[in-house]
Write a protein that binds this DNA or RNA. Structure first.
Lengths: 206, 206
DNA sequence: TAGATTGTTAATCGATTAACAATC
DNA sequence: TAGATTGTTAATCGATTAACAATC
């Protein structure tokens, strides 16, 4: 609905969830104020960076006493589209899939885990919370089609991703330690814990 | 052991795990060759970027036929220190902790899950794989101390992180949707799936 | 007013891309 | 040799930081 926001820089987009994470559980009443330097300090950024980032958000003039927490929350919720229901399919009913499907935060941010799929026939039919694991082919049936806009492929990522894409999924969160190739119109975000572990350990060498 | 490597740029460090992920399961025999453009294409980078990145790796002259896969693997394994045992403590024996503790890849990359801890007395004593969940205080006892160099705090991250740091942990992988404040000497890497979900969904708006 | 903070513009810094000479 | 690819240097681009005027 934003009439025209001049494209948000990549680096800013990356930081938005962090801003929200900080604002959401700030230990102050909702109509108190925060200053740039508080946010910057808490997130390990310079206050310059925060000020620059905020120019990309449609924020009410901060006056001199900083920003009303309530207002910041509102703006961030809007720009991150947190209140919009996002239908989610999880592929892979192993431990990680299970952990995700029962991950409380997802609901809090309007991610609605609709279905959990697996290729392995031994897992199909088992229960995870209130969901029954279905065969991955389910996604191509009319009932599922177009209802899911985000999916999380675990192992055999590329093959699974291909099937998801052809069935109309518009966004993929890749949890596997491989790169997924996808057409431009499909957004792929990587979230690979193995990379993060390796990154951490190589940072620790220095 | 590296006598003096001129500090690797941050951006390169970030990409190293990706290079390795690609090289490790490339579909070619080990003593075949890869070219820059193959790597670049597979990872969605320009071949310029890959070439620049590789100048930071101690790589044998590529000659004209590209790089021997075997050699690249060797170099990346070395620079990522993959063969070095890294002792790991997982804090939080919930679904995510469970998923991590049984995550096969960790072993493959020499991460040795030594202990799994929780604050919740109801979980302490339960079994996860071959490990028994222990109380978080265990980390401060002499037996555990100095044995662990990486830990993964889940919920109540900051509080837990503080306890881990005082007990001598040198690296933290933060899985929680909060920022962890830590002294300079402790390396903290964030790996928050909730951020990644929000990032994906905000990328999908445009 | 004086002090502090915002919002914006300019300067710096780093990372990516392009260009090209050197090599096989 | 001609073509292709590497390794390196230079040019571009974007992101971060610094500086400062405007505001309360």
């Amino acid at each position: 609905m934003d009439t025209q926001t001049k494209a948000m820089p990549h680096a800013v987009t990356q930081r938005l969830p962090q801003y929200f994470a900080y604002i959401k559980d700030i230990k102050k009443p909702d109509d108190e104020y925060v200053h740039f330097h508080e946010i910057a300090y808490a997130l390990g950024l310079t206050s310059s960076t925060v000020r620059m980032d905020f120019t990309h958000l449609n924020i009410q003039d901060g006056g001199k006493h900083g920003y009303k927490i309530k207002h910041l929350k509102h703006v961030l919720i809007h720009v991150l589209d947190i209140n919009k229901k996002k239908r989610l399919a999880i592929v892979g009913a192993g431990n990680l899939g299970k952990a995700l499907a029962t991950h409380g935060n997802l609901e809090e941010y309007s991610f609605d885990v609709r279905t959990i799929l697996d290729i392995n026939p031994e897992l199909v039919g088992s229960k995870i919370g209130r969901l029954t694991v279905k065969n991955i082919d389910c996604l191509t049936t009319a009932r599922c089609k177009d209802k899911i806009n985000i999916a999380v492929p675990s192992s055999s990522a590329q093959e699974v991703a291909y099937r998801l894409i052809t069935s109309g999924v518009k966004g993929l969160l890749n949890l596997a330690f491989t790169r997924i190739v996808a057409p431009q119109k499909v957004v792929v975000a990587d979230s690979c814990i193995m990379s993060d572990f390796l990154r951490l350990s190589s940072l620790m060498i220095n």
